[in-house]
Design a protein around this nucleic acid. Structure first.
Lengths: 342, 342
DNA sequence: TTGTAAGCGTTATCAT
DNA sequence: ATGATAACGCTTACAA
């Protein structure tokens, strides 16, 4: 059947321990035996059983990515392949495999920790902060099991990688200020959402730095979808003194806002400027194209992967954490000065 | 350190084979021993080593999803999470794990077949037809290794699951005909693209069935992106007798077409109708919203997963293949009759 | 119903 | 430089 290390040993007239050493390129084996054994392996089409190797080496050489397929679809979908490609780009060359696991909270028997961690299926774990409960963190820590979350984590010291959402808010708002806008509204986001809090905080800070007073009524809370963006902006435009520009929580929010503005026949970027978080899927395609904040999700994955490897190799160092910087894609929707010159 | 089956055996005063049988819920073990041993497992926080189990059982209980992260990103990105969620939904409950592997053609040493298949890392493989070369099919077959491709495969008999692109073309075209359109152009797609061929074939057939002659010059080939859609339709509209409706290869293509039409000030759906493949990301959001063909990528993944399990369990049956049916989402962009009544 | 012992395919530790 | 042999942690005949 399957050819094993034993078969090679027999064919080469050596002990299987010798074959094993050839496999691991041990310096104690002579050049001659190595080449001879390798030739035989080639001939017999031998590939070592990774499972046996793992058992003997006590390492699965496998890292796990935990997601909640039920919940995350909408938000993660467009980015997921990028993220895992990023992870793969760093762990792949180190011969680690990537296992995707679906956490099913409804089935405690198929508990994630047992299924993956205790069973030795994976050597390290990456998960979105949204699904990483404090209980899980505790358990993982008590097992000295290496993991990294994608997304900031502050209630506990854990290793994490994220984009700097506050800085993003500053960048978008700062850009609008640079372009001469003065009355900037923030559209979308629930007060308790972690991401909203960060983004909004950057917005406030940019205002503060520019010496512009923060106005409570310029933040329109909500689910950050197209409909909310539309309704919110419609209402703003109806008021006596509408804002002269908008920062939107995401592309859908911005798209709704855009509709409302166009319907009201107000000029972009001349009369109102609009900038938004996320570059996907609409920003480059709308009319006018939207100034927006690009987040390199591949890099995010790669960073998380690198951090995990680091944590796995040096468990005793303090937990690392890293904020990546977003990139501002300036497009027509905020170019007030340029528009003014025309 | 880690608690093993041996420790449990000792603590419970039984042989480790007994513990193993308890683990596998063998009917030969008495209720009493079972509960006693299980209690001890619980107390000692025991989880069996999956690697040891796999070695003993000679099955990795793991299935692999092979992708080319370098190439597929753009096309697969929005669907990838859906597809693997679908796969997981069927293999997960059967206790299979999902490993995502990046095929790196540039590195033959890290050859996919060896790395995953021969090494016993996975028991079955799912891959997009685009990256499944004939060589690979041959090798896989010679190893009697179970696999399924996502996407039709005809050069060889292999198990595959796909959406019925020809039927999709018929549905879109047929719907336009039903609405009273008679001169339907097909926008986007390269003549040699497999998907284009299928979709276009359905388009032609619908015309044929309606007794409308097929006109070569009504098919505008190209890369099927926004720019091509825009240019193509711009040109069509400039001609003496522009078509009265469009079938577009995808959302980007359709989006470009939409821009051209709006710019020309032509009424949708009154003067021209527009229908497109794919429901993502623009179709529901444009103005007017686009009639489009929805493909349930979760189902596609689930189907592929089910087929793989089937092939794994019954290797001797003839290879299955399955065409799933798309769903037509009718929206304003093609409702000519209704528009006519107003 | 339970126990004994021989695998599963490697690696690792000693000898030689 | 090579070989014997005991792990690694589980399953599975076969005995008892």
């Amino acid at each position: 059947m399957k050819v094993t290390i034993q078969d090679i040993a027999k064919a080469a007239n050596v002990a299987k321990s010798t074959v094993s050493k050839v496999l691991n390129d041990s310096p104690k084996i002579s050049k001659e035996t190595k080449t001879r054994v390798r030739e035989i392996m080639e001939q017999m089409n031998y590939t070592p059983s990774s499972i046996a190797t793992r058992l003997a080496k006590r390492s699965s050489h496998n890292i796990g990515m935990l997601i909640d397929m039920a919940r995350e679809s909408e938000y993660m979908n467009p980015f997921f392949l990028n993220i895992i490609s990023g992870i793969e780009s760093v762990i792949g060359p180190m011969k680690y495999e990537l296992t995707i696991a679906n956490m099913q909270q409804d089935d405690p028997e198929r508990n994630v920790i047992n299924r993956l961690v205790r069973s030795g299926r994976i050597d390290g774990l990456i998960a979105n902060n949204a699904i990483m409960s404090e209980d899980m963190v505790k358990t993982l820590n008590s097992l000295d099991f290496p993991f990294v979350t994608i997304g900031e984590f502050h209630s506990f010291p854990v290793p994490w990688a994220d984009y700097d959402n506050a800085e993003g808010g500053r960048m978008l708002t700062g850009h609008l200020l640079d372009e001469g806008y003065r009355d900037i509204a923030f559209i979308g986001g629930e007060p308790l959402e972690r991401i909203f809090t960060k983004r909004h905080q950057g917005y406030r800070q940019a205002l503060l730095e520019a010496g512009i007073p923060y106005r409570e009524d310029r933040t329109i809370h909500g689910v950050a979808d197209e409909n909310h963006g539309y309704q919110a902006v419609l209402e703003l435009l109806r008021s006596d003194h509408p804002p002269d520009s908008l920062v939107c929580m995401n592309n859908y929010s911005a798209f709704g806002a855009l509709k409302a503005i166009q319907q009201a026949g107000i000029a972009i970027p001349g009369e109102i400027g609009i900038a938004t978080f996320d570059d996907y899927p609409f920003s480059p395609h709308t009319n006018p194209p939207l100034t927006s904040l690009f987040i390199d999700t591949f890099q995010l994955g790669a960073t998380a992967g690198r951090m995990l490897i680091e944590v796995m190799n040096q468990p005793d160092l303090p937990y690392p954490s890293l904020l990546l910087q977003p990139k501002l894609n300036i497009r027509e929707s905020t170019l007030k000065r340029k528009a003014g010159l025309e």
